[in-house]
Design a protein around this nucleic acid. Structure first.
Length: 478
RNA sequence: GGCGGCGUAGCCAAGUGGCAAGGCAAGGGUCUGCAAAACCCUCAUACACCGGUUCGACUCCGGUCGCCGCCUCCA
């Protein structure tokens, strides 16, 4: 088995992956907080995680992929410094839209999976919702309580980080250093600024929460971090192999998960921690307030295919900020279309993937790039060099479809799609034009071509005869 | 203010102490009735700027500028 090296945030260096069980890898990826639609920056992270999973599988590991859905407890300020002043994101969205928090969770969860499906992101083997695991979270808090890691304030049960000496290991920053950089403490009941809520009490009075549960400490709801600890342990055991998320989680969410899990179980939580970088847009930070936190839906409205966005993401290493520009997305879309055209041509030239063989030299170069910390830009370079080389169509197809197991660009579906898109009406016009053309009546032929173009198709005369292709020239407006 | 990352052709970008991957765009050609696709060729004396180390740096060191991130919710 080839050596796969990954950059481990824990230690800040590339390390060889050595799974705990021979051929199996336990993978936990932090999922969405379903209080709103996911924007393309969010989606980039899920594409990175999808690539990781596919690379693991390409290396013949059996992957068990678990992802959470945060549908409760993620407060607007549930972190360092102001754990008691935030509001639950779900409840805020509910107030804003007039829908129930539960309905919204369902709505945005479905929207999320619709997006990931369009991006050909493989669905995790286990998708677990925080609200479906309240007993597990309560049990974990009780365990921490029994071991003396917690204390109670007027608004909740907190984790005392001073009892956990290695807190901040992931960050490479000691508690003391973190404290020195912290701002004004806004929750005077907390013993240490880095302490965080494990369980929050429902506010007393008229303003009832929509999401709340009974617990040994009274009615309330779980803290944001506890779900990941409870569910990762439940489904993957502890320790497990790889834990992923966005870079924003390096400093608070993940250290807190580590503290909870390791304090409770007395063993390491996960061996590898991988983090995907953020996106910028036209060189500026991306955010809702900037008006550039685009949704996948908006890209589609501008005439782009979801997989063009996926291709764009593959073209930049996951640990480097990706600068999103419309021009770059157009480039990605063209490149993807061309790649698909190569598959189409290989098919047209009689290529049958089942009769071809995966060419070892192409696969090797591709794999070397992948196994060096998921260097997809370099892997794509290898793909293009291969695509431009002269091969017999069957071998070419077999190889490209093999590489696409990682790329996830749906290259195997190219043929079917091309056939489906041509309506009988267009087929008929195409036949008429070919007849005119054969009769050297080019004026007539060109007129028919215009007619076909009006129906949204482009006429292409290929060595195998004329064909129509759906025009993808919906010009994007920057 | 503290800590960290980045700055490579019009755009997205990979990379290495020893003559700068790949894709998009652009220009030329083959093919075509004309096109499209495909294929071929061209396209950074140059890797933000200024110093230093070195036989040699884009790659190492120091400084400057710019952008981004974290320290405060965010993938």
């Amino acid at each position: 088995m080839a050596t796969l090296k990954l950059f481990n945030t824990l230690g800040r260096r590339k390390e060889e992956l050595k799974p705990l069980r021979d051929n199996e890898v336990g993978l936990y990826t932090c999922g969405p907080t379903v209080y709103d639609y996911a924007h393309i920056g969010n989606l980039r992270t899920y594409i990175f995680e999808d690539i990781l999973r596919r690379v693991l599988e390409y290396n013949n590991y059996k992957v068990k992929h678990v992802m959470n859905i945060t549908d409760v407890g993620h407060l607007t300020g549930d972190n360092l410094g102001d754990a008691d002043i935030g509001e639950d994101r779900m409840e805020i969205s509910a107030q804003r839209t007039g829908k129930s928090a539960w309905d919204l969770a369902k709505l945005y969860t479905e929207a999320f999976f619709k997006d990931t499906e369009r991006l050909n992101i493989l669905k995790p083997h286990i998708v677990c919702k925080a609200t479906d695991h309240i007993p597990e979270q309560i049990a974990l808090v009780r365990k921490l309580e029994a071991k003396g890691y917690t204390y109670k304030t007027s608004d909740g049960i907190y984790f005392d980080v001073s009892k956990f000496p290695t807190y901040g290991e992931l960050v490479g920053q000691s508690l003391k250093e973190k404290k020195a950089g912290a701002r004004v403490e806004v929750n005077p009941e907390k013993r240490n600024p880095a302490d965080f809520a494990l369980w929050k009490f429902s506010p007393k009075g008229a303003k009832r929460r929509q999401m709340e549960w009974e617990s040994p400490w009274g009615v309330g709801f779980p803290g944001w971090h506890i779900e990941c600890s409870a569910m990762s342990t439940k489904y993957l055991g502890q320790p497990f192999d790889i834990h992923c998320g966005g870079v924003d989680h390096i400093y608070t969410h993940h250290p807190n998960e580590i503290a909870q899990s390791e304090a409770a179980e007395g063993v390491k939580m996960a061996n590898f921690w991988l983090h995907g970088e953020f996106m910028t847009v036209e060189g500026r930070r991306m955010g809702k307030s900037e008006g550039n936190a685009y949704l996948l839906e908006e890209l589609i409205e501008r005439g782009f295919k979801p997989l063009a966005f996926r291709y764009l993401c593959l073209n930049t290493h996951y640990r480097i900020q990706l600068n999103f520009t419309w021009q770059a997305l157009e480039g990605a879309q063209t490149a993807l279309e061309r790649l698909r055209e190569h598959v189409r041509n290989a098919r047209a030239n009689g290529g049958e993937p089942a009769q071809g063989k995966v060419l070892p030299e192409a696969r090797e170069r591709f794999l070397v790039a992948l196994n060096d910390d998921l260097n997809l830009p370099q892997a794509l370079g290898a793909v293009w060099d291969f695509v431009r080389s002269q091969r017999n169509p069957s071998d070419k197809l077999a190889t490209l479809l093999d590489l696409d197991r990682v790329l996830g660009l749906r290259l195997s579906e190219v043929r079917r799609e091309a056939e489906l898109e041509i309506s009988p009406e267009v087929q008929e016009l195409l036949a008429q034009r070919e007849a005119a053309r054969t009769a050297k009546n080019f004026k007539e032929a060109d007129a028919l071509r215009m007619k076909i173009a009006e129906l949204g198709y482009e006429v292409l005369d290929t060595p195998q005869g004329p064909k129509a292709a759906k025009r993808s020239d919906a010009t994007p407006k920057p």
